[in-house]
Simulated assay, not measured.
Amino acid sequence: MEAPGAGHVLARRRQLERHSDPSDRLELSRVLVAGKIRNQHVLLRRRARRAEEPDLVWQAASRLSALEVRVAECGDVAQVMGVEGGASGVYYRAFARVLDPALGFTGRGRRNGDVVNALTNYCSALLRETVVSGLLAAGLDPYLSFLHTPARGRPTLAFDLMEEWRPVLLDSTVLALTGLRAVTARDLEDGPDGPWLSSQARSQIITRFHARLAAPARGWPAPPAQRTYADQLRAQCVALRAWILGEAETYDPFAWR
């Protein structure tokens, strides 16, 4: 509701210094992408038994495990992004197999007209604003990133931290909504720039997403008792600040279980 104050200026100054160091950018980029890939193959392993072709989903999870290891071998951020792109291709081909074919999902694309991509886009916006709030509370600049290239008007540090949370909060919400048929293809309406979700569908998404945030966090190592996913996300923002300030040697992404 109001602009961040100047109390965190030292943290932001240190954030700029570490952003300007290629080795620091590479270090954080590796762990962020490795964390994302790990949580992707955890989701696939959870859902494989419900898929029409579970063996193919298991194979995709195994390939993602190998790509997670490969991230550590990358020599620069561009290589890290290359591995991330390859992992996303593997993941979304398998993700399509755990969905109802009637939903028409053939791959991830922001402008694709199917209901799964529309759901993913909307949930992504909800997750982005949740992460931006956590970063501001931790005294970090949401626009100064390490993995993604900073761009005017884009909170790219939020995009960095969203990576590890996409399978946990975003994709799991999409699967819950489609699995319960709370949102279907009938909820798409014609908008000025493509299909839009109906107001009823948006209400269902917000309710389910916030219920997911309020659920007990399941991670490894186990989070403290009574900690929700929303609590854990804020804790990750604080942990990122500690790494930026040099108070922690490493940043450990959230490991889902």
Rank of each mutant, 00 (worst) to 15 (best):
E2T: 13
H8D: 15
H8Y: 13
V9I: 13
A11Q: 14
R12A: 08
R13P: 00
Q15A: 11
Q15S: 11
L16D: 09
L16E: 10
H19K: 01
P22H: 09
E27F: 00
S29H: 03
R30M: 13
V31S: 15
V31C: 13
L32V: 07
L32D: 03
K36T: 01
R38W: 06
R38A: 03
N39R: 04
Q40N: 06
L43I: 09
L43R: 03
R46I: 00
R47S: 11
R49A: 14
E52A: 15
E52C: 07
D55N: 08
V57K: 02
W58Q: 06
Q59S: 12
R63E: 12
L64N: 01
L64H: 01
A66R: 13
A66Y: 06
A66T: 07
A66M: 09
E68P: 01
E68N: 03
V69H: 11
E73K: 10
E73F: 03
E73Q: 15
G75Y: 04
M81E: 10
E84V: 02
G85Q: 05
A87I: 04
A94I: 06
A96I: 10
R97W: 00
D100G: 12
L103S: 12
L103Q: 08
T106M: 02
R108S: 11
G109F: 04
R110C: 03
R111C: 06
N112C: 09
N112P: 00
G113C: 09
N117Y: 09
A118V: 07
T120L: 12
T120G: 07
T120Q: 04
C123T: 12
S124R: 09
A125S: 14
L127Y: 01
E129F: 00
E129S: 09
V131T: 08
S133N: 11
G134H: 08
G139D: 07
G139F: 05
G139A: 07
G139V: 04
P142W: 12
Y143F: 15
L144M: 11
T149G: 08
P150I: 00
P150C: 01
T156K: 07
D160P: 01
E164I: 00
V168K: 06
L169M: 10
T178G: 11
T178P: 05
G179Q: 06
L180S: 15
R181I: 00
R181A: 12
V183F: 03
V183L: 08
V183W: 02
A185S: 15
D190V: 14
D190K: 10
D190M: 12
D193A: 15
L197Q: 09
L197H: 08
S198W: 03
R202P: 09
R202G: 08
R202D: 10
S203F: 04
I205K: 02
I206Q: 10
F209E: 09
A211G: 12
R212W: 05
A214N: 15
A214Q: 14
A215H: 08
A215I: 04
P216M: 10
R218H: 13
P221E: 04
P221D: 07
T228M: 08
T228G: 06
Y229M: 05
Q232L: 15
L233C: 08
R234S: 07
C237T: 13
V238T: 14
L240H: 13
R241G: 03
R241M: 08
L245S: 05
G246D: 12
Y251K: 00
D252V: 14
P253R: 15
